[in-house]
Simulated assay, not measured.
Amino acid sequence: MTELGALGWLFLVVAFGAIVPIVPTGAAVSGAAALAFHQHPLLIVLTIAAGAAGAYVGDLVMYAMCRTGGESLARRLRWLRDEEHLAAVKERLSKSQVPVLLVSRLLPGGRVPVLLAAAFLGLPWRTFVVANAPACLLWSAVYAGIGVAGGSIFPKPWQGVLAAIILVVIVGQTVSLINKRRARAAEEAPQPGETAA
């Protein structure tokens, strides 16, 4: 497969994964960057661009689905799980849109609640289109950086790809575990007006 063909596949995988959030898109970008590291430095830049473009297009489709289908679609596809968390995201998003979009792209599992909140708040298309572009670029660059790190440590490309994917999975699981612990601690904390037993 040619380099352009591989970049095209990366774009498609990331775009599909942005719409169907079960595909490990970060691992795809990291793996591609680890391979690119062993071939040509320019390919790393093109990998970042292909990953960012795929994420951007996928996010636009997902945002359109959320705006069009609304809450009923989100419930049917099981995107809407935690309404209290969604309310908190809506509040943060109404105060600062660009930083929230940037952070949501970097946190595993953070993107879908923010896209839902943005759609439910009626965030204008123009604002979303402009604010999401740097978020996708930053996301792609971070995951490509993980891939380059993996590719530079190991002499063979397949070892770098494997290391990058494992690192992405470990980081994702760690962040998910931290978020679950925080949510559990918040549930167990006494609410205002309650007295501790």
Rank of each mutant, 00 (worst) to 15 (best):
A15N: 01
A27V: 02
T127D: 08
A53R: 02
G145H: 08
G145K: 07
I153W: 09
F154M: 10
V98C: 04
G5S: 07
I19W: 00
G145F: 06
T68K: 10
M1A: 09
G5N: 01
L42D: 12
R78I: 01
F16I: 10
S176W: 02
V161E: 11
I170T: 07
V129L: 14
W79P: 00
R75E: 13
E187Y: 13
S72A: 15
G26R: 03
V175G: 00
I165N: 08
G69W: 00
A133M: 14
A183H: 08
V20S: 04
G160W: 09
V129Y: 06
H40K: 06
I146H: 04
P113Q: 05
G160N: 09
I170D: 03
A133N: 04
H40R: 10
L4I: 04
S152C: 03
S94E: 08
L121R: 12
R181N: 14
L101H: 07
S96N: 13
I170P: 00
A55W: 00
G151H: 03
S104G: 15
Q191W: 09
S30I: 04
G5Q: 06
G193W: 02
T195G: 15
R92Q: 14
A163F: 13
R184G: 04
P21D: 05
A135H: 05
L138D: 06
E194V: 13
V57G: 08
I178Q: 07
L4Y: 03
P99H: 09
S104L: 04
T47S: 04
L93V: 10
A55S: 14
P190A: 06
V98L: 15
P134I: 13
L12N: 02
P190R: 09
G160S: 12
R184H: 13
L73K: 02
V89I: 14
W9I: 12
Q191S: 13
V57T: 14
P99K: 11
S30N: 04
G69V: 07
A49I: 14
S176H: 12
I165C: 11
T25W: 01
P108H: 06
P41D: 01
S152M: 13
A117T: 01
